[in-house]
Design a protein around this nucleic acid. Structure first.
Lengths: 188, 188
DNA sequence: TTCCTAGGTCTGGTGAACGAACTCACTCAA
DNA sequence: TTGAGTGAGTTCGTTCACCAGACCTAGGAA
C-alpha cells in the first residue's frame, strides 16, 4: 500500500479525492498552480519541497488528470505544468479549506485575500461574489496579500511576484525575468 | 519535522489548515465524525486504520480544537469524540472535496447523496439548497447511499447504519445496539 | 573548454505507517 | 472468584515514504 494513497476500502468520494490530492505537498502544488506557478524550479523554490518528492507529485498529478505538462519554450525545450479543467475544479475545495484555515488555524488575519476581478468584492465563504451573486471561476479571481501576510518570510521569485495583486491562473514566470513592470520597489 | 505536518515556511492559510487535517486519515476521521461516529472502536472498524495511528490522530484533532473528547457513558466511563464548532465548519471543504472526487476520481456515480433535510433537495456544488436558497448547515443535511455505492464492500456496524438515510452529526452508535428500529433485515 | 541553467535521478539516513500482539480497567455470567 | 468479554488504548518489529544533498544530462552562453 502506497503511503498516503490507497484508501481502497473506503466507499467514499472523499477517499477517492484524497488518493489524488491527499498526499503531503499535493494540495500545495495545486494551490501554486492556481497562483500561476508552472516551472519545476519555481515550485521547488516556493514550496521548499525535496526535488525527488516534487518530481513524484507532479507525475502523479499529471497521471490523475489534475495537471498537464506542456512545453513553454523551445530551444532548449522546457516543460511547465498547468491545471487541466478537472484541476481547475479543485478551486472550490482548496478555497474552502484555506478559508477554514484562516479562521481556525491562523492568527493575525487573512494571509491572502481573494476578490472578484470584475467588481473587486471579496469572495464569500463558498467562493461566490456577494455583489454579482455568481460563483466566481478561478480565472476571475484576484489575489492580494491580506492583513496577516508575513512579507518577510520568503524571498523567492514566486513569493515576490505574489506580493502584488495577481490574477489566478495567470502565469507568474514573466515577472521573475521582467521585474519592474509596475515600478516594483527593490526589496529590503 | 513531523511527517505530514509542518509547512512552517508557507505563508498560507491552506498550509495552516493542512497541518491540522492534511495528514493521512485525518480528513476521513473528520468525515466519520460528521457521519455520527463517536467511539474509538467504530472509527477503527469503519476506517480500517491502525489503532496506534487512530490514537495519534484523535489526539491531534482534539489538540487542534477540531474534535472534543467527552464521556458518553458512565460505569465504566467511556469517551467519545465529537466535532467542535470549528470542526463542524470543516463541512464546506470536506463536502467540496467529496463532490470533486465524485466527478473526477470515481466511476459509477455518487457513492453518497447529500440533501437538505427540510425539503429533500439535493445540495448543489457548494453545499447550498437550490430550493430554499440557503447554505445548509451539516446538522440539516441528510445523507443516503447514491447510485455508485458499493453495498457489498463493508459490513461493519457503521457501514450498515449508513446504508439507510441518516442525518449528519446524529450519533450512530445506538443503531449498533438497538438494531431494528426501522425493521432492518438481518444481513446475509 | 568551461560554466550556467533547467529539470531532473540517485542514495543513505530517519521516522511515520502498518499489523499484530499485548495491556489495563471494568463488567457480566457462571 | 474465576473466566470471558469489551473498550480503549500501548508496544514492537518491519516496511516504506520523506528528506537533504550530491550527482547527472542536455542545451546555450562566456
Amino acid at each position: 500500500m502506497a503511503l498516503g494513497t490507497d484508501y481502497a476500502q473506503q466507499d467514499c468520494s472523499l477517499a477517492r479525492a484524497l488518493e489524488v490530492v491527499g498526499e503531503r505537498w499535493s494540495m500545495l502544488i495545486v494551490r501554486d498552480a492556481f497562483y500561476g506557478v508552472r516551472r519545476f524550479n519555481d515550485f521547488l523554490a516556493h514550496l521548499d519541497i525535496p526535488r525527488a518528492v516534487l518530481t513524484g507529485r507532479l507525475r502523479s498529478l499529471v497521471a490523475a488528470g489534475v495537471l498537464d505538462k506542456e512545453p513553454y519554450q523551445q530551444s532548449p525545450v522546457r516543460y511547465g505544468y498547468g491545471l487541466t479543467s478537472a484541476g481547475r475544479e479543485l478551486w472550490l475545495p482548496i478555497y474552502a479549506l484555506a478559508r477554514w484555515g484562516e479562521r481556525h488555524a491562523s492568527d493575525g488575519g487573512a494571509r491572502t485575500v481573494f476578490s472578484h476581478a470584475t467588481c473587486g468584492t471579496r469572495l464569500d465563504i463558498v467562493g461566490s461574489c456577494p455583489t454579482c451573486c455568481v460563483l466566481v471561476a478561478p480565472e476571475d479571481v484576484m489575489m492580494r496579500p491580506g492583513p496577516g501576510a508575513l512579507t518577510e518570510l520568503r524571498q523567492d521569485p514566486v513569493s515576490r511576484a505574489l506580493g502584488r495583486p495577481h490574477r489566478l491562473l495567470a502565469p507568474i514566470e514573466p515577472l521573475s525575468e521582467t521585474v519592474g513592470e509596475q515600478a516594483a520597489e527593490p526589496v529590503g
